[in-house]
Write a protein that binds this DNA or RNA. Sequence first.
DNA 1: AATGAACTTGAGCAATCACTCAAGTATGCT
DNA 2: AGCATACTTGAGTGATTGCTCAAGTTCATT
Lengths: 200, 200
Amino acid sequence: MTLMARTASYDRDAALEAAMTLFWTKGFHATSLKDLEVVLNMKPGSIYAAFQSKEALFRATLDRYAERMTGEMEALIARSASPLSALQRHLRGLADLAPCDRPSTACMLVKSLLEAPQDGELRTFISDHLDRVGQVIGSALEAAKSEGELPEHTDTDRLARRIQTYIFGLKVQAQRETDTARMRDLCDDLAAEIGRAAQG
Amino acid sequence: MTLMARTASYDRDAALEAAMTLFWTKGFHATSLKDLEVVLNMKPGSIYAAFQSKEALFRATLDRYAERMTGEMEALIARSASPLSALQRHLRGLADLAPCDRPSTACMLVKSLLEAPQDGELRTFISDHLDRVGQVIGSALEAAKSEGELPEHTDTDRLARRIQTYIFGLKVQAQRETDTARMRDLCDDLAAEIGRAAQG
DNA sequence: AATGAACTTGAGCAATCACTCAAGTATGCT
DNA sequence: AGCATACTTGAGTGATTGCTCAAGTTCATT
């Protein structure tokens, strides 16, 4: 029987959210512990007691980000009558990535992937998360196939990889494209590609 | 009349190349001056005499990278009979990005764009370089149009943006995709998209 | 040779980095 | 109330950061 003593004063969920926002905007290397102390409103000792290290905290925020991303995507698919049109809507939605409500229009996972050392363990950690996102897309395509939206011979894994590649590219473009009309056209073009895959 | 004295002992071109390789692989923040001292074989004083600061050196390597990238692309287009198929070949070539001869399969400009502060001047510096690459693609498409490879009504700027988005996405995928066959399929798929644009 | 401009050197600057730990404080349990 | 336990605190760790500069070295010119 453990003896509970002083209760933690910080809100773990809020802290992770704040850390995620910071890492997402500034990147891992450019984020200092001083920065984290401010947004977490915690002293270094507490930070290291709660999360084991800067990198461990970073990974926790990546977990959070990935879970949210897949969650939103799954919700969008579940909400929609057609899995295929849900994916198209997701692509078109990338045109509306407001720079205000989100910390960055870039994908935190992609950003982190490119920043992480090429051969490090962190790299595979991030890549695994991206795989999981890809699997969400893949299972949506499987559902689309069984609903007759896609031809029976469709290679859903391959198509999923293509769609994820579109998302990667679009989110990079969103980082620099200021013209919203052009961004919308671009998203529409790539969304249309998915529709074309439905034909054959 | 200036009086030349001691001649510089370092090879500026080789130094820039080495710095580019380092920045490209590790990224700006993860590259320390100690790292640069080693690969440039220069002491801090010389580095700061030759290049004004770490960031100035970084920018110089970005110039070098961008010039090389556009140069290679223009050469590929010039070498080819058809501008459109040159672009397709470029996309398919992304499947063969060997991790050995190049420092990174990722695009240094994209990597740097995502690492740079959102509102900083460096960001626009990098984005301008990416614009220039986009213009190379755009003028290739213009050439394709005047040669009858593309319909007269084709919006070449828009198509150029789409192709560049493909390149962005593919180079991110190349960072994590180990299966060469799947990577090849992916590149083929996106190259085929360009061909489809030629129809209508 | 002697001169002086151009370049190299490397010790060392203040600042910051990620991180630690002993001391202090608050809380649940008896 | 009093103890034990967990959590918070923040000054301080050594290492490293980007960068400077006075002293030394090399070379074209005289």
